[in-house]
Simulated assay, not measured.
Amino acid sequence: MGEQVISGNTRIGIVGTGVISGTYLDHLAKLPGVEVVAVADLDLSRAQAIADQKPGIRALTSGELMADPEVDIVLNLTIPAAHAPVHEAALKAGKHVYGEKPLAVDRAEAKPLLKLAATNDLRIGCAPDTVLGTGTQTARAALDRGDIGVPTAATASFVTPGHELWHPAPDFYYQPGGGPLLDMGPYYVTSLVTLLGPVRRVSGRAGRSKDQRKVHTGPRAGETFPVEVPTHVTGVLEHESGALTTVLMSFDVWAARLPRIEVYGTEGSLSVPDPNTFDGKVEIATATARDWTELPVAGGYAGAGRGVGVADMARAIRNGEPHRASGSLAYHVLDVLESLLEAAAQDQPVDVASTVERPAAVPLGASPESA
């Protein structure tokens, strides 16, 4: 059986109409080659409210959306615990599927999805697609040009005092599947794999500063809740290329002056913008010019927003090409993150079982319809 051929615009059906769906709807409406034709939610009234505001979009139940012949790709925006079941339902219905991160709550849930998609000649895509913007892609172009020589090392850090300071119901950030590594790590590790290639081995340590935290905003302000996961994780990723990345992910830091991502090479250093954004300033310092200098944009989808990964996948399906924000990449990233937590728990390095090809660069001036 060959891969499904799509002619004309690729038609998207969204399952899950929470806050993030609004961002996707806004950006997908601006992108060529794709159109949202249906939305579904456990609360059908929420889907209907969107349909009432967006001409051409129908409100359906999840089952109706999966069975609808007018839907080519299911965009899964449900909560993380529902990612795998919704992906599976979409694939069994013969639909390509793209979802928010993570691909699934763990590797045991995620791996069968890749097999199911491959068996049925279907695609899986997964956020983050921020790495397809001009920020990470300009850094990628600099590395590919050899601007800092051979990359030998990198640092990646995300620190905050905790999401309970702003989120009215932050409990899930501190339950299994949460914590700083699994919450924000996908953005950083996806960017690192895009820049430096896959990871073969990890080592690390993990801890937490307190067993209880307090909600600071909303109707539950003042209420305490338990912390069940590490809230401070640090480690080293050994890339297949030989480069070593030092990572720090924490919900235990009140203030710090740390780079989001820096890459160090034999001839210089590269400062990479926040991987949770699509653009940002890329700076370089070299052996002959030690002062940091901003690089001109050299790659990536300009003006990108949430959903550019869906459009990139839709074009790739139409043209029979690999898509960049792939299920294989998302699985490898999840494998790296889980392996790092295992290395910390076991107090010894852990080999990463999976690998993935470094995604193709997004050239300067590219459009999701033609890149």
Rank of each mutant, 00 (worst) to 15 (best):
S339G: 15
D291Q: 15
P180S: 11
A316S: 13
A287H: 04
A38S: 12
P226L: 11
R140K: 14
R58Q: 12
P69T: 10
G94E: 04
D43A: 13
E109W: 04
T136A: 12
P359V: 06
D41P: 02
P275H: 08
L165Y: 15
G303L: 11
L65N: 03
K30N: 05
G222I: 09
Y188S: 02
P230L: 11
T152A: 11
Y174E: 10
V297H: 01
T266C: 09
T160R: 14
M1P: 12
S326N: 05
V272R: 07
L196Q: 06
H323G: 04
A81S: 15
V19Q: 15
E164L: 10
H323A: 08
V215A: 03
R213G: 01
F225N: 05
E262W: 08
P219T: 14
E228W: 13
T286I: 10
T266L: 11
G135Q: 06
V229D: 03
Y174L: 11
G125R: 04
E223V: 09
L181K: 03
N120R: 15
T355A: 06
P176V: 14
I20Y: 12
A84K: 04
D335K: 00
K210P: 00
A82G: 00
L65G: 00
R220H: 10
Y187S: 08
A82P: 01
A89K: 13
